[in-house]
Design a protein around this nucleic acid. Structure first.
Lengths: 231, 231
DNA sequence: CGAAAGGTTGAGTTCCGTCAAGTGTGGTGG
DNA sequence: CCACCACACTTGACGGAACTCAACCTTTCG
């Protein structure tokens, strides 16, 4: 975990996608003063449940997971975070979840209290975050729908979602993509066991619905069949 | 479903709890002009997925559920809404979920577009909704944790949540409460079958962990045991 | 009162978790 | 460059949890 002291928003590749895009140059300059860059390696925890909850952040590159651990130490993945995504539990006294890097990642870190002040100072930022949070709420509810199904239905649904995300076009899904998650992470996301994930994905492969290429590569062979499994 | 034409915010019992509490009297008067009351009966749908999504609302009394229906017609309950709660998918082109009354309810209905305009006009409202939405996101993630467990664990967790909600004190749970949901709704919320809910609740009763009183009444007899089941 | 809706219970089956033993695969260091 | 290790993934056998189907009971309401 490495800290670089200052933000350079002008050259930030996300300046048109992250919540801060709505700020004027002068406002963004003010915001950048209270933040700094952070680099984390795959597997590292960015911040933890039980922490003082004094941090919020925007992901600039890589990928994160938001997790909780039950009393038995089992991980539950609650959400995935992609570049331009915002993490941090605003207006809450303490953090409830763990933020863990899925791949080497870069973030803009802000002091949470000061970020909340910025929200009050810049109404456009409040609206941008409201949109982003509404969207995450929607995603979270999609995940609930996914989980509340049989194991093969939720896995097929997840594969389709990954294929959709990997596609550049909004109307077609990618016919090939790399799984962004390990079998174990998929299991923790869907609330099933790792063996079940393995078995079902292999079965899809054997049935010719998908074609596994290496550990992470997936080729969609029969999209209709995959969609038909969503029950 | 009955429409009363105008809002009367001055006498509203929620004027200090709903999102609109942050507005000044004059601002609230403006907002009230674009809204009206709606009365719905238990079981009625307030609005549906696929609708134009031109409505948002604040619940003033009663209770709602936010549901989706999968391709087989099975209902999945995504969230419960209590008085002062806000419903409506802001910034989205179409509604994805169904809003259904769990009990006879009253709402303040707003044209969604005009509510979004109000958000832009009144920064405090944006922040209030951001807080509320963050909170809902948090609740939604709690539900994900609950679902990702064995049936008896999620049911015991839900019972404890109901007991907590029914209590007036923040540090103790109520030792008696009425279930706010039918067995079927509990099943749809937790992603299990109605028979499973019935069997498990009955088993808790037989084991002396709870005592069922009528169809909806629940007395918590052994809170420790109930908490211990959360695995 | 009778119908409809909500709830309970049992028997049989299927799915998925558990446990255990494997097979890659990528990285490190000799 | 290869040997080795750690880690991720796969596979099988087995058992138990939850689903399905079906019947029955209870409460509510017209």
């Amino acid at each position: 975990m490495k800290n670089n002291s200052s933000l350079s928003c002008e050259t930030c590749p996300l300046k048109d996608r992250a919540a801060c895009k709505v700020l004027k140059q002068e406002e963004r300059a003010q915001l950048s003063k209270i933040g700094h860059h952070l680099t984390v390696k795959r597997g590292e925890t960015v911040f933890s449940a039980g922490d003082n909850n004094d941090i919020s952040a925007t992901l600039t590159s890589g990928a994160l997971k938001i997790s909780s651990f039950d009393s038995d130490g089992n991980e539950h993945i609650l959400s995935l975070v992609h570049p331009a995504g915002f993490v941090g539990e605003l207006f809450a006294p303490s953090a409830h979840h763990h933020i863990i890097a899925l791949t080497d990642s870069q973030l803009c870190i802000f002091d949470r209290k000061r970020y909340e002040e910025a929200i009050e100072r810049f109404p456009a930022l409040a609206i941008a975050l409201l949109q982003r949070t509404s969207d995450e709420l929607h995603q979270s509810r999609n995940l609930i729908e996914l989980i509340g199904q049989s194991a093969s239905a939720s896995i097929s649904g997840l594969l389709l979602e990954f294929a959709r995300a990997a596609s550049h076009s909004p109307c077609h899904i990618a016919d090939y993509f790399e799984l962004p998650l390990s079998r174990g992470d998929i299991a923790n996301l869907l609330g099933v066991k790792i063996e079940t994930v393995s078995r079902i994905i292999r079965k899809f492969d054997r049935d010719g619905i998908i074609k596994l290429e290496g550990n992470r590569g997936v080729k969609i062979c029969d999209q209709i069949a995959l969609e038909g499994l969503t029950i």
